[in-house]
Write a protein that binds this DNA or RNA. Structure first.
Length: 107
DNA sequence: GGAGTGACTTTTT
DNA sequence: GAAAAAGCCACTC
């Protein structure tokens, strides 16, 4: 089982209405490879949304911003990622999550 | 197995 | 407070 596979497993466990950061994921896995987490996601952007796969839109940067982008393969920009998060009761203010610490899911 | 890369994070200008 | 630099670690070639 690769590191990236573990990442996926964790990401899939994130409940609706919650988000997590790259750093959190790495931390849970007992490492500091935040970047590797991002890489893992970038290599598996296929089928992340309602396809029951990896909800990568629930992964955000440590400061509460959306960070990278989501839905590149689906042709949807960050804009829609934010919309999607708002739909899951996660509100934004200037590209940053409001009450971030409350929405953060720590496994 | 060494070198380059990257959806990141923290610290310093 | 925004922008740049440095530091991390897995992954690929």
């Amino acid at each position: 089982m690769k590191f990236s596979d573990k990442v996926y497993e964790l990401v899939k466990k994130i409940p609706k209405g919650k988000v997590t950061t790259y750093k959190e994921i790495a931390s849970v896995l007992g490492t500091n490879a935040y970047r590797a987490v991002g890489i893992a996601m970038s290599k598996n952007t296929d089928g992340f949304l309602s396809k029951g796969k990896i909800p990568c839109h629930r992964i955000v940067a440590s400061d509460g911003s959306i960070g990278g982008f989501c839905g590149v393969k689906t042709g949807k920009p960050i804009k829609d990622k934010k919309k999607l998060l708002i739909k899951e009761e996660i509100k934004f203010e200037k590209n940053k999550i409001i009450n971030f610490s409350e929405k953060l899911f720590r496994f």
